[in-house]
Design a protein around this nucleic acid. Structure first.
Lengths: 201, 201, 201, 201
DNA sequence: AATGAATGAGGATTCATTCAT
DNA sequence: CATGAATGAATCCTCATTCAT
């Protein structure tokens, strides 16, 4: 079988549990139970708990992979930043566990080198896209301040992360329509704010 | 003395280790070793590992406690926000471990209720101060956008957190003068950016 | 073919690994890897790890089987003992793994009954040959001491074993010519010593 | 407590079980059960199973430590060798487990470096004593053969080991008087044989 | 106030073995 | 004949916690 069913089940359960509780608070047996296999089976596919974790983290790279450069293809830089933000929010909606994992691991200090690398890579992908967008803004006469791109990047990233955290902590996205609406509104506000900031001549 | 020397040593070691490795990656014995006491001694002062952790997290409340309202005492709301940001950065400089712990715990989803409460309380303290500042801005004719205070709060908080994370990941603050200078510059930029955003009429 | 290629490969690998590391330090998977088959395949041929081990140990009997009686066919008992010793050394040269296994198992106390039996049988084969040789010596007027044959047997066996252990621990036989020569010399000395002892009138 | 009772109990049980079954066939739980402590307690005193094993093996050095040089203090080299042999047999009587362990480990090929070292050291102790005795023999005009000391040493060692193995495999020493007597006789014979060999002019 | 000794519960990992194909 | 997938039992080891002193 090319893409083992069991493998997929293990990964999915791992994703969920690691995201929720962190690597050291999840036992192999829990993952085994959640994925309906024997714990030895996990060792048949992955060399160790750490190995499984790394495989899961690698998925993050896949999720955040190419797409952000697509945003830059839009004509207007303000459209571009808007697109990038929506892409980011979409990723979250579609891979809540993975994105949660990403946010968690991003601020941990001691961790597996390979995990660290993946996190940096994902951040870089986003940063580079933002860098281009900011340059485009400047070309159009926007962003006349003498502040560095870096501050703007951190600001945009910061507000995106806070938006997601706000949502995450308010409970899962789909609880009811009202809430969904509320979140959509808030995301819209966030994007408007960012655009407003960049647009200043 | 209410606050025995031993107690203090234990707390300080716990702070350091918990901040660096997270609660589940630190053993009572490690804390005992770091603080030069026997692990049983820790149980003499604290009922359990969790209890010790809670006590440490409570320190965060002390650190972030009152001061932010001081910021609001300034005349100009732009001065107020500036003051608040510097306060935040100062807290970090003076309590790197505790602030790190705060940032870590802030994004974890599963955790001790009391820890959760403390984290919320600290966030609220900051948020309330920001809320007031934003209102003051509006009173002065700034911030003419129809965006909610909440987005502005998230934005400001986001950029503050990212600034600290940037610094934290670039290595300890005091490695050399150049670096210190670099960070100071960046912090300045961040504050300028925030003020610029709020100032818009 | 009675004796399939795969079977042979498994046995050979088992021999090597069991001799080197002992039964409990070798896993079925190691043997599978070494012999280039799947571990399930081993279970196709042998009922269990123990079963495989027994089959391998049985080889020892084949190796040490008949030949020692050949020694007794020589005319002179001193020639006989010399022949027996050389036979023993030759066995070692040609089946280092098996002989190593024999020496190992010989001194272990807890073991599979069938293994024990095989070891005893091999020892008996040698002992009986030696017994005959000693009787022949006495018939010729040698060995006038009132010591029992048993002590002589143990002595001869002891020196043979020590000679092999000496060589085994000094490294593999064929490292270089010098070493080979050195071992040959030592073996010669050992046999001379034994003959000298038996020859005493 | 200087010499923890628990420690002693663990060591004794380990000695017994390791000697009987070999390190990899004994579980920590078995040792715990045999010594009447919890298996965690073993880890309180020893870092790992291997560590415990090393500590036990170190005892071998203590047992075989100095005494063999005492043998050399006798006047006559034949007395000396006799003394040395009896010392060896006595060690066995008093520390059956440890000596068994020594014999076992002596022929294993793959093993812990520290264990290997201890085994070599013990062998050296005996070999050096034998070397001196052989030199003394030569000084007195004995041992006129042109064979090296090494062969003689191996021969003596071989017969001693075989004698012990013989006894070990025949069952524990003290089963009944008859058997005791039988073993004593055999040991006597072995020593006589050795002396006879050395005495040859 | 402080500690050394001891433990029970639980965790990661290994491994011989089975079974469907 | 041969194998990939799967498992249960067992193993080493860790760690928070307790208790007598």
């Amino acid at each position: 079988m090319h893409f083992s069913h069991t493998r997929a089940r293990i990964i999915r359960s791992g994703e969920k549990l690691f995201a929720r509780y962190g690597i050291s608070n999840v036992t192999i047996r829990q993952i085994a139970k959640e994925s309906g296999v024997n714990s030895s089976t996990i060792y048949y596919y992955y060399q160790s708990k750490e190995d499984l974790f790394e495989h899961i983290v690698n998925h993050i790279e896949l999720v955040f992979g190419e797409d952000f450069s697509i945003a830059v293809e839009k004509n207007d830089p303000l459209e571009q930043v808007s697109e990038l933000c929506w892409l980011f929010f979409d990723k979250y909606n579609q891979n809540i566990n993975l994105v949660t994992l990403f946010l968690d691991e991003r601020i941990k200090s001691n961790q597996n080198e390979r995990v660290k690398k993946t996190i940096r890579k994902v951040e870089n992908t986003i940063n580079e896209a933002l860098e281009k967008i900011l340059d485009n803004c400047r070309d159009l006469g926007y962003l006349k301040s003498d502040l560095s791109n870096l501050v703007y990047i951190k600001m945009i990233f910061g507000i995106l992360v806070e938006t997601i955290l706000f949502q995450k902590r308010s409970g899962s996205l789909l609880k009811n329509e009202n809430q969904t609406h509320q979140f959509l509104t808030f995301r819209n506000e966030a994007i408007h704010l960012i655009k407003g900031i960049l647009m200043v001549k």
